[in-house]
Design a protein around this nucleic acid. Structure first.
Length: 891
RNA sequence: GUGGACGUGGCGGAAUGGUAGACGCAAGGGACUUAAAAUCCCUUGGGAGCAAUCCCGUGUGGGUUCGAGUCCCACCGUCCGCACCA
């Protein structure tokens, strides 16, 4: 606990008993909810379902403020939907496999299982202290054999269905973590977790054939209308569809190393074929290698290109270079037209065929290349309204729209017409007995490599037999359980060294065999946990089809934007794979997605540049300037930028400390206030204080209203005084706005409306002191107001709400109350105050009856002094009356 | 480079094309108090004026409209994603 925290706690403890004691009340209500099973969800409940899910955490040992924000948002939705009459599923679990557990094993000599389960216990306690309305009976840990048993079963089902493939491939090897990474896990040539520069290695790997679903995954993005547009765009780009043409160019065999006579290239711009100036091959292309075998200088060039890393900075600055192989290609439309074939450093073997034709006039990379080697260029697309005779390209390629020029039979056509024409002609032409070209759709999306050379993951349930090859582990032998007795004193995979576990008899022939020692990527674990939550108890299969089909898709999924691609795309694939193998009935797992912003905080550093934590710093504001000093020594501290909370910047705030000092409700309320949920939120000490003050104010208001409410008649009065009506209108106005805001996840506006409403009630209480507070209709309105106020903030501050609800005399739990109903009649005013503008600038206001006609309003407006003055005695040109909104007089 | 989002007081931020700055923070002033804390009240975009009031104002410049923070075009800036993808 920080010194500041101590200071506040002392103050808090010295306060009078009328203060709300959050710490005491919160544990008490948590116990009550638990004992009464308020948040346990029944699968046979007949009410309509609502599935709200937050991305489950990795059990690192402690929750952080990002979790607090994420889970608070989900909890507001869950509590609100529960009150709206839905059967809400709101579960929690643990993404429990992964490298940190093994790192801990290596560093601290603690077994990954022990480390993980201790962390889970600690974090569960923290989550419970937040008062989340979770059904803990459905808790899942992915490292539990009772969970991964089903994952292994599905792996085998996928294998049978052709969704899994074992292939030799170049993989990304992380030398620090000694593990394999998926392409998606390599960021800027470095491991996404370790940050080490990734090496290329040739290994046999297990793959999920996600690329079989490229088109489906792409198309279905259109249907995900409750996903952020940003995430949809990112997924579209990731799948990276491009439509083009595979073209087989003839080679002059006299010029090729081994009499090769053909080169296949991929292009998305067949229209520019008459602007071709050269061909280029990836350094790894077979033809490049064949040529290099006979040309030491080329071999040297290729070796040189390999020395350049894939690091961001290098790619950005790398010059486009090439090496003329001397090979000549023949233009498909003109046998007399030969093109030089280069090996070039900017051609990727992984994409298309690893070979291209270069059209410099309309591709910047190709233009840079020809300008370096003096190959020239011919423009073949002329922009609109430009004279083809004078159109020349020098330094900037033209990739816009236009009409074909310098292209023989294509001249005058649009780009699309030209593409179509070229495709048709080349498809019907033949070389040997095959068409010269064929249309092809390319995707950037690669298959999902799931093999990991790690211990702490789900074992891949196959056995390698010397005679039978790859043999699936029979169902009856599932799960393949991780052995407990492993050593982490050497790098590499402990499973590979565990001979007793590794060596088994082949299930088919009984001969000598060994287990697969690779384990699955942990993204597999998180690709179906949402389905398991629907019936986590079922033992003999991964899912109960009835339950999974009823509950899924998740109605509202909430988590960080960092999972926009990997986790969400894998889960979408996995759900389809589960459908294909009969484990689920839908394609899409998440109907609604919300990505919340980060929690950020000021940074503080000492003169020597080392960061210090917010808890160690004292901040003083003097004359507008803020000064920071170290609490212990008083030495001055510089205030740095506001950044994402991170261990390295030491600008983290511990949720335990906040909850222990101010209570969970204050932490929750903070997370929902001010900043729109999708944007970053800055955690500040002033902010916490303000929320704490407001929590106490709510408690006080409800306390005072309790006194008034006691005088309320049991029956709703038939008539209400103006004063009582004003309260009722405020109540139902707040109710209407807040309901709407929660529906749309606009929590910051919701919070603002609660402030506004409580201010109104606070004034209403003030007025009762000097007037007749005993009026039964007013007392009734105040009782209604108090009840609804408590229900309105209940999803956000549930503990305070229960305490208030009890203080108001209710014997039941507010957590179980239905959401109050809006009386629509109270939202409509008899009179309206319209702003009156002259030439679009506000000059006056006009109060009219609600049903006043436009003509009446117009007449009334023209009598206003301000309007007459502005018109200067002249008649208006026009008067615009927007009903219920505004009047504008045009002078 | 490319795609996208955004740009509003000292700060976080409100605002179906219709009264810009709701609500909160911070700051200043006041009440209560021996004093403090707590609480309550007032002020708080800029400028002019004793005042009523007036003028200016949502990154910059244009445009559409009776009316633009909001829509369109160009530019500047910030942030994010992707990136030698043929």
């Amino acid at each position: 606990m920080s010194l500041r925290g101590l200071h506040l706690r002392n103050r808090y403890e010295s306060m009078t008993t009328s203060r709300y004691n959050a710490r005491e009340a919160e544990t008490r209500w948590q116990k009550t909810w638990d004992q009464q099973g308020v948040f346990s969800t029944k699968n046979d409940d007949p009410r309509p379902k609502y599935y709200v899910l937050e991305m489950f955490p990795y059990p690192s040992g402690r929750i952080h403020m990002g979790h607090v924000r994420n889970y608070t948002m989900g909890d507001v939705v869950a509590r609100y939907k529960r009150a709206m009459g839905f059967n809400v599923l709101h579960p929690m679990g643990w993404d429990a496999f992964g490298m940190p557990a093994e790192n801990a094993a290596m560093v601290n000599k603690v077994h990954p299982k022990k480390w993980t389960y201790e962390n889970i216990a600690a974090m569960k306690k923290q989550l419970q202290s937040m008062g989340l309305s979770l059904d803990w009976a459905r808790e899942i840990a992915t490292c539990d054999p009772a969970y991964y048993k089903h994952q292994q079963k599905m792996f085998l089902d996928f294998l049978k269905s052709g969704l899994v493939e074992r292939k030799q491939s170049k993989v990304n090897w992380d030398p620090v973590d000694q593990t394999v990474l998926a392409n998606e896990q390599v960021i800027d040539g470095k491991g996404w977790r370790s940050g080490a520069v990734v090496e290329q290695r040739e290994l046999t790997q297990w793959f999920f054939k996600i690329s079989d679903y490229s088109e489906d995954l792409l198309k279905a993005i259109d249907s995900l209308d409750r996903w952020p547009e940003k995430v949809r765009t990112m997924q579209r780009n990731w799948i990276g569809k491009s439509e083009g043409l595979l073209v087989r160019f003839a080679l002059d065999p006299k010029t090729t190393p081994n009499k090769e006579d053909e080169l296949e290239i991929f292009t998305t711009r067949p229209d520019t074929l008459f602007g071709a100036k050269f061909m280029a091959l990836a350094p790894d292309h077979p033809l490049s290698l064949a040529a290099a075998a006979k040309n030491p200088k080329l071999a040297e060039y290729i070796a040189e290109t390999r020395r350049h890393g894939t690091a961001q900075a290098e790619i950005d600055t790398a010059e486009k270079t090439g090496f003329d192989t001397g090979i000549k290609a023949v233009h498909p439309f003109d046998p007399s037209w030969q093109l030089p074939v280069y090996v070039a450093n900017f051609i990727l073997m992984d994409y298309g065929t690893g070979a291209i034709f270069g059209c410099p006039a309309h591709d910047q990379r190709d233009l840079d290349f020809v300008n370096k080697y003096g190959l020239g260029n011919v423009p073949v697309v002329c922009p609109p309204n430009v004279d083809p005779k004078t159109f020349i390209i020098t330094d900037t390629a033209y990739d816009g729209d236009g009409r074909m020029i310098n292209s023989r039979f294509l001249d005058g056509k649009t780009i699309d017409e030209a593409k179509e024409d070229v495709a048709k002609r080349l498809e019907s032409g033949t070389r040997g007995n095959r068409p010269v070209a064929q249309r092809q759709v390319n995707y950037r999306l690669r298959d999902w490599g799931i093999s990991r050379k790690r211990y702490w993951g789900c074992p891949i349930p196959v056995i390698h037999c010397e005679k039978c090859g790859v043999v699936p582990v029979p169902d009856k032998d599932l799960p393949v359980v991780l052995p407990d007795d492993v050593e982490f004193d050497k790098p590499g995979n402990p499973l590979d060294r565990h001979l007793a576990w590794k060596h088994v008899a082949c299930p088919q022939c009984g001969g000598k065999a060994r287990r697969e020692t690779d384990t699955m990527d942990t993204f597999v674990d998180s690709s179906w946990y949402f389905a398991r939550f629907t019936d986590p108890w079922i033992e003999n299969k991964p899912t109960d089809r009835k339950m999974v089909d009823e509950w899924l898709p998740v109605d509202q999924y909430i988590g960080g934007i960092e999972h926009a691609i990997l986790h969400l795309l894998y889960s979408r694939f996995f759900t389809r794979a589960m459908k294909k193998t009969g484990h689920a009935g839908m394609d899409e797992p998440f109907a609604g997605l919300f990505t919340q912003g980060m929690v950020i905080h000021e940074t503080y550093h000492k003169a020597d540049g080392t960061f210090v934590t917010p808890a160690e710093v004292k901040i003083e504001a003097a004359g507008g300037a803020r000064k920071a000093t170290l609490l212990t020594t008083g030495e001055p501290v510089s205030i740095g930028g506001i950044e994402k909370m991170s261990k390295s910047k030491r600008n983290t705030v511990d949720p335990d400390e906040i909850i222990g000092t101010y209570g969970a409700d204050v932490a929750r309320w903070f997370m929902l206030s001010d900043s729109p949920p999708e944007r970053d939120i800055e955690w500040t000490e002033d902010g916490v204080q303000a929320r704490w003050t407001f929590m106490q104010k709510l408690w006080r208001i409800v306390g005072e209203m309790t006194g008034i409410a006691k005088k309320a008649p049991a029956q709703k009065p038939n008539e209400f005084s103006e004063r009582a009506m004003a309260v009722r209108k405020a109540t139902h106005g707040a109710l209407s706005k807040i309901s709407d805001d929660i529906d749309k996840l606009r929590f910051n506006r919701c919070v603002a409306h609660i402030y506004e409403y409580s201010n109104t009630l606070s004034s209403a209480i003030g007025e009762t002191e000097d007037s007749n507070a005993g009026d039964p209709d007013f007392a009734w309105a105040m009782k209604e107001a108090a009840d609804i106020l408590v229900q309105l903030f209940n999803p956000m501050m549930p503990h305070l709400a229960e305490e208030c609800w009890a203080a108001l005399g209710h014997k039941n739990l507010v957590a179980m109350q239905p959401w109050p109903k809006v009386e629509a009649a109270l939202l409509v005013e008899d009179t309206l105050t319209l702003p009156v503008q002259v030439n679009g600038k506000k000059k006056a206001e006009l109060t009219v009856k609600r049903d006043a006609t436009n003509a009446e309003i117009e007449a009334a407006v023209l009598t206003l002094d301000e309007v007459r003055k502005a018109l200067g005695g002249k008649p208006p040109k026009k008067v615009i009356v927007v009903p219920q909104r505004i009047v504008n007089v045009v002078a």
